[in-house]
């Protein structure tokens, strides 16, 4: 992960690097500095009494990390856990949180100016979870609002 952050040095001041991943058919992205690591630790310990979207907890090198099912948060259908399922680990207020995604796609570098306000017709996800999108020739990357995703208060 350190390497990733250092890569940023090589990119231009007006560029950002995005980690992109799939939930169902939707291609999502997070800024690379928001992501601590990506792992395959998909066997979780269920949390009794927790909300539906909390898939469980994992032991990440001695730290307790909550794993959130991103599909459920975004209101997407939940495909079963496959070989491609990954945990995108992020840190929020010093707490480790894993986002369970269906697969990881790529790391892309894009000019800041290419991040645009989302068109209204986007993909059936609650608008509060994203603000900007990046349109590639053949797809659209939805840039997640991490705080909104994590601070689910039901």
């Amino acid at each position: 992960m350190v390497a990733m952050t250092q890569d940023r040095v090589c990119i231009g001041a007006d560029e950002v690097q995005l980690v992109t991943f799939y939930c169902g058919d939707v291609l999502l992205g997070l800024r690379i500095e928001q992501v601590q690591e990506i792992n395959r630790q998909t066997t979780v310990t269920p949390v009794p009494e927790a909300s539906d979207f909390v898939s469980g907890a994992i032991n990440l090198r001695g730290e307790l990390a909550t794993v959130i099912d991103l599909n459920k948060v975004l209101g997407l259908a939940r495909p079963s856990i496959t070989k491609k399922t990954r945990n995108v680990m992020v840190t929020q207020e010093k707490e480790l949180i894993g986002l369970l995604v269906d697969s990881v796609s790529d790391i892309i570098t894009v000019p800041v100016t290419d991040l645009v306000e989302s068109p209204a017709n986007v993909i059936g996800i609650d608008a509060r979870f994203f603000q900007k999108v990046y349109v590639t020739p053949d797809n659209i990357v939805v840039l997640l609002e991490l705080d909104e995703v994590i601070q689910q208060n039901e």
Partner: peptide
């Protein structure tokens, strides 16, 4: 004792977590 994450605050029956000798989590 490991404190619970923000998403588990509403779990009133749980007080924390621990990691057992085999690396598994126990509430």
């Amino acid at each position: 004792v490991k404190p619970l994450g923000q998403h588990m605050k509403e779990c009133r029956s749980l007080d924390g977590a621990t990691i057992l000798g085999d690396g598994q989590i126990a509430w």
